[in-house]
Design a protein around this nucleic acid. Sequence first.
DNA 1: ACCTGAACACCGTTCAAGT
DNA 2: ACCTGAACACCGTTCAAGT
Lengths: 226, 226
Amino acid sequence: MRVMTNSIPQTERRRDALSKERIVEAAIEILDSSGESGLTFRALAARLATGSGAIYWHVANKDELLAAATDHIVARVMAEMAKSPGPREAVRTIALGVFDAIDVHPWVGAQMQRAPWHTSMLQIFDSLGRQLEALGVPQAAQFDAATALLSYILGVAGQNASNARMHGQDPDRAGVLAKTAAHWAQLDAEEYPFVTKVAHQMNDHDDTAQFLAGIDLILAGIEALR
Amino acid sequence: MRVMTNSIPQTERRRDALSKERIVEAAIEILDSSGESGLTFRALAARLATGSGAIYWHVANKDELLAAATDHIVARVMAEMAKSPGPREAVRTIALGVFDAIDVHPWVGAQMQRAPWHTSMLQIFDSLGRQLEALGVPQAAQFDAATALLSYILGVAGQNASNARMHGQDPDRAGVLAKTAAHWAQLDAEEYPFVTKVAHQMNDHDDTAQFLAGIDLILAGIEALR
DNA sequence: ACCTGAACACCGTTCAAGT
DNA sequence: ACCTGAACACCGTTCAAGT
């Protein structure tokens, strides 16, 4: 008769055992609450009630940790993406999904910039590219068009990330905009004729609407290719 | 009779005296040769044959140093910009000037992302915006259009910076592209139908041409606004 | 196999002490 | 007024030692 051991099988660990998943989840929580500068291996180890070296057993280094955290967010975005009727709407939906995710997790924007050809970016790139055929874009132009869309999205993503870095979790978004508008308005009109002219538009300014306006501009240019 | 001191007037210092200008110049040299990670106050102090604390007498902190270095590069780009005949060409010239500067100084791309509303960025933003009137863009749409152009430029800038961070001063750009193309080609065609389709285009790939193709796409969209 | 936590080799920044 | 360089408070990462 074989003796049954009461040891826990390898696939079924203690609730509080360390794993890459738990580490990534904790990292995302720290990134969301304390920003990019708040994520240190010491802070992460403290939250997981372990030593900083233990994390290195599951994760190679900080780059891999940030990449895994970004993958986690992007995967969720792509999964929740409802099928859209037309290709034009699909592109807007993808772009908006990324934009909203970065609004909630600004550090994702910085990470996307840092590793633009990582898996999570390739998923977005591919789903953008898939729509271009349906839009009637010639084969030869599809690559450039998809790259343009992705570059624009990454540009806005990076700016949102740096805004968050600068102003933290500042709830007074309107106040920041008003301050910028006032600063622009008082610039030398000889040196900055355009900025002084559009300064007032900074006040009643909708980030999301402006982002979509840019997407529409590129889409209009793409449709002109036919 | 007043005694003439032989002390050097304040405006005319010793050749090797420290100054913000000399510090910024040295910082740019280090950034160009060793990349962003090479610029430390210790390395900078060593190159200037002084103590690290001395730098802080002329520069508040590392952020100010990076901003000043970026201003220096951007100012040169904007100054060398020849007047272009039409507004369409002017936008392309500005964009190309920024693109080329970032090609030589990839760290500028990262810094532009970090501080998008700094003086040097405002100059670019303004000179882009000035062309839109001549393009016949309605007043209400000019702000969005200029922002879209800048966001796209910043997006490409950030990607170039991260490429440089990854591959350093790697002269084998073609080899890197070939490697990426090979990687894309062997991806699962079910999961990445678009990426696998365009993989071969990564091989004979011209960064500058692709960047300008994106600018032209946005310009075509802008011209459709009339 | 996995975890601990001290130790190492760095950072940016400060500051008492010099000239 | 400007410079020096040791010191401080951090980092990411490693690794001998534990379980």
